[in-house]
Write a protein that binds this DNA or RNA. Sequence first.
DNA 1: ATTCGCGCACGCTCGTCGTT
DNA 2: AACGACGAGCGTGCGCGAAT
Length: 344
Amino acid sequence: MVTIADVARHAGVAPSTVSYVLTGKRSISADTKSRVRESIRALGYQPHTGERALSASRANVIGLVLPLRAGLHLPVMMRFVTAAVTAARRHEMDVLLMTAEDGAPGLRRAADSAQADGFLVLDVEMEDDRVPVLRELAKPSVLIGHPTATKGLTCVDLDFEAAGAKCVDHLADLGHRSIGFLGAPSAVYRRNTGFAHRAMAGFSAAAMRRGIATTAMPAEEDYESVLRSVQALIRAHPAMTALVVHNDAALAWVSSCLRASGRKVPGDVAVVAICPDELAEQVSPPLTSVRLPVEELGRHAVELLVGKLEGRAVPPLLLLPPRLSRRVSTPELASARFGAASSG
DNA sequence: ATTCGCGCACGCTCGTCGTT
DNA sequence: AACGACGAGCGTGCGCGAAT
């Protein structure tokens, strides 16, 4: 194994000088720098991560806490992971994916064993038992999502309440007066998961404000369940002309389930989804959506965590405003009616 | 024979000091 | 002032000698 001492001997400098060239933490003359870099290249030196962690008391690892619970849509979660890994690499940090569902004790164990320098926490519940632990840990953390009480925490999230409201406002502006809400799997609501709870709350409040009749149903992650939920929504509100979908797994089936229930999209029912843009664009027909900015959230979370690790002051709560992208699933109501009339 | 405590090594960073 | 070198110390496991 080539060590920093080998490089130093080869370059004719002290090991510490090699270290400074590598870290850039002290100015080193251009001549010395280039000599050291040439020696590193010639010897094929790779810094020893473990020893570096030992001496710096830093693992250069971010723990990404993502319990694989029921109702989580993994493809979207993996995009969070990818975004976090990419952002972490820009700071020469790696990401340790912690998927075990052992909540607070698991978090404490990971912190005490110095496996990670800080934590990103996903799938945050309104009353999350990990939060008290995060508050007292000696290591910094950032939550993607936010619990009821955010004191002493750093959180980044889409403003899901505003997102739910934006869906209602868009549909109400188009003239819809009866709107259904197809929600996340029931387990997600049972856990009182923050994003699901808030989107629903924002939807309900906006509907009340605009005088809109609503019904909400959760939907599990299989076709049959989505169909049952869609049919239940129609039974409860036969006059329903619009549907808000906050369930990534159900997106692919919503239009066909509505069709199977005798409603065409968008002729009979307009649809707005809260999901990543790409998902809304991939389904047929493409859906108007309030964008879930997965990559942006992951990137912000890492930047906030790195900021905390470097001792910088960071905002306690960063809420990204919702952005709606209009697609064919929410046409002007008059033209939708015209389309429905002309086709049938 | 087993247990215990101590010292050391590992590779690297960083505070401090010396040299130019 | 700029640059380079020195050496303590980080956490853990191992080997050694002493004590039981």
